[in-house]
Amino acid sequence: MCYVTGYTLVIPLSQNNLDKTAGAVKAGQQLNPFAGFDFTKGNWQAFIVVSPSDFTDLHPSIQHHGCIKTGDRKVLMRMKKDWKFRAIGGDMATFQSTFYVVRNHKVMFESGIVLDKQRQGLQNPQYGWMEPVDAAEIISTCKQFKAVYWPIVFL
């Protein structure tokens, strides 16, 4: 039986290479989670899987689509250079959407993501809740992601 939901189902099956050495971060500490990534080598892609429950408050500049992605090296390099965050020192319990950075079919970074009209940020076990230093930069970069029309994406 096949259920048609209208949304892309993203299934992370690959062996991941998530950085587990980040260590404790302090509230207020500035972070660049992509600083160690060399986007010039290998096949890199970034995916944002938007939960249907997040569409209501999703920033109007972001495509209202279940899954958006980029493999454009210029966009990825812009993320590396300009996506700087400030550790808040806690967790955001309400995130539903997920952000993945994948290299050669291996998940290199995974995080919850919030792209609301009023608030943007990432949360993962390594850093906790992080808010962008420049929220406009995050939105501007995410606007360049393209809709994924596949019914299922395996990472």
Rank of each mutant, 00 (worst) to 15 (best):
L115I: 09
Q29I: 13
K143G: 02
D134H: 14
C67G: 02
G121Q: 08
T40M: 10
D116Q: 10
G23E: 02
P12A: 01
I138G: 02
A22L: 08
V153F: 04
L115D: 10
V153G: 08
T56C: 10
N124F: 04
M92G: 04
W83P: 00
G42P: 08
K146D: 14
R119S: 12
I68E: 05
L13E: 15
A93I: 08
M1W: 12
V101W: 06
R86K: 12
P12I: 00
Q15W: 07
I113R: 01
Q123M: 10
K69G: 00
V10N: 04
L76G: 03
G36K: 00
I62P: 01
A27K: 12
C67A: 13
R78H: 10
I138T: 06
E110W: 00
S51L: 05
I62S: 03
V10I: 11
K106I: 06
A27R: 07
P132A: 03
Q96H: 14
F39C: 07
H64D: 08
L9V: 05
H64V: 07
Q15P: 07
P33F: 05
T56E: 15
S53N: 13
A24N: 09
M77F: 10
L31T: 01
I68N: 05
A27F: 10
S97P: 01
I152Q: 12
F55S: 08
P151G: 10
Q96S: 11
T70P: 07
N16S: 13
K74G: 10
W44T: 00
G90L: 11
A87E: 00
G71P: 03
Q123E: 14
Q120G: 05
M92L: 15
N104P: 07
K41G: 01
Q144W: 03
K69D: 03
W129D: 11
I88M: 11
K74D: 15
Q118V: 08
F85Y: 13
N104D: 15
L18W: 05
I139K: 03
K106E: 09
R73Y: 06
R78V: 09
Q30R: 14
T8Q: 04
Y100K: 00
G90H: 08
Q126Y: 07
G90M: 11
G36T: 04
V133E: 13
L31R: 05
W150E: 14
Q29W: 06
Y100N: 00
G28Y: 09
I68C: 00
Y149W: 12
Q120C: 15
T141W: 07
G23S: 07
Q144C: 04
Q29L: 14
Y100A: 05
P60W: 12
Q126R: 01
D116G: 12
L58A: 06
A93M: 11
G112S: 15
F55P: 04
